[in-house]
Design a protein around this nucleic acid. Sequence first.
DNA 1: TAGCTCTTACTAACTGCAAC
DNA 2: GTTGCAGTTAGTAAGAGCTA
Length: 237
Amino acid sequence: MPADPKPYRHRFPKSIIQHAVWLYHRFTLSYRDIEELLFQRGIQVSHETIRDWCDKFGPNLTKELKKREPQRGSRWHLDEVCVKIKGVKQWLWRAVDEHGAVLDVLLQEHRDTEAAKTFFATLLITNEVPTAIHTDKLGSYSAAIRELPELHGAEHREVISTARCNNLVEQSHRPTRSQERSQKGFKSISRAQNFLDLHARTSNLHQHTRTTVTAETRRSNQKAAFQTWNEVALLAA
DNA sequence: TAGCTCTTACTAACTGCAAC
DNA sequence: GTTGCAGTTAGTAAGAGCTA
């Protein structure tokens, strides 16, 4: 028999908590911005409490959203960018499919063959073996693909690393850069990884809710995205 | 009484501006 | 163009207060 769920002891209703967490991961807003937005609606809560909510519910939200994501495309686009965390250089590995949906993000200290293998292994846990892998000219990718038998059937295409050539994944880095800038840099690896995970899942959820589709489709997609978020937020709480 | 929330203070990074 | 400085704004930590 499953144990009784932990009683809900938060002072604020779930709807407010889920909205605050959603705002933080969906838009380029600081905790203090969200504090102000909520205050405008008559909700008095400190920025520190909002940070606690993000810390507490973020990992569960990521897990639940991941579970609900549809099967992704079979062509992977990979790239890595340098991010500084507390002044130390780290590499943010990112993979998107041919539709621009984020498959995974992973922060690692290096960008050598071992790091590439770790990232591929992470991707293979939740995704099927791809038919093609698009990367830049970094040698770690080809070395890792050679060493991983699961990937031998995939076609490896190397392109020059410019925003134009590997556009899908390069574009996917942009919101992250914007958030990083707004947050004045990430402060710790674990917090950054948690944030980036949920940020990626939230972006996927709202992927077709902007200008690439007709207004009618957009509204329908937005409705579906909000419904999913609400369901997932209830589970995470 | 456990744990949620708030207050306060700290450090780090960014921004704007003047001086060179 | 660059450097240095001050002001601003961000995330974070610790501890006290509050509530179910």
